[in-house]
Amino acid sequence: MSMIMSSIKINTDALEGELDRFLDIPADHSDLIHRSEAYRDVKYPVVLTRLAGGEWLAEHKDLPGCKTHGGTPEEAMARLEDVKLSWIYAAMAEGRKIPKPATGVPIVKIV
């Protein structure tokens, strides 16, 4: 077995290129990261829901499907910030318009 393994050489540059293609990483990845990070301080209203198992669901209704859960409301909201930026990154990569936060609603609503 060791003789076989010692004769195999891996072209890591080619592997990285193939991995990027497999993962469908956009060519403008760095720009998308920078542009999505600009939304870190944009405050979207959060709806917090206590789940039957005791965990909390946090979601941004303005960003459809942007939700996560945590053991406490604070944990769920902290995770939601990362999910929000990932949601915005994906929307930008797909060329979709980023919705503006709803106005006139509480920033955090517990249901």
Rank of each mutant, 00 (worst) to 15 (best):
L48W: 00
K97A: 12
Y44S: 05
R50V: 04
E55I: 00
A102Y: 01
A52R: 14
T68H: 09
D41P: 02
R50M: 15
K67Y: 06
R21E: 14
H34P: 02
I25W: 05
R40E: 13
K97P: 02
I10L: 15
E18L: 15
R35Y: 06
P73E: 00
D20G: 05
A90D: 15
A38K: 07
T103D: 07
L63G: 10
R40V: 13
A76Q: 09
D82M: 08
E74S: 07
A78L: 15
A52Y: 07
P106Y: 04
L32P: 04
P101C: 07
L19N: 07
A93I: 04
K109Y: 11
S7E: 15
G53M: 11
A93N: 03
H60A: 11
A78I: 04
G53V: 04
I10M: 14
G53D: 15
E81Y: 05
S2P: 01
G95Y: 00
S86H: 09
P45T: 03
E59G: 12
P64A: 09
V111W: 12
R96V: 02
R40S: 14
I107Q: 11
E55K: 08
I88K: 03
A76N: 00
V46S: 03
D24W: 04
D20Y: 03
H69F: 07
K9N: 11
P106T: 12
T68A: 06
E94I: 01
Y89P: 05
I8F: 01
A58Q: 06
K84P: 03
A27G: 09
R50P: 12
T103K: 14
P64L: 02
L19W: 05
D20E: 11
M3K: 12
G53R: 06
D62C: 01
K61S: 13
G71E: 12
H34S: 11
A38G: 03
L80F: 00
D13H: 05
G53C: 15
K100R: 06
G54V: 03
S86C: 11
D31V: 13
L80M: 03
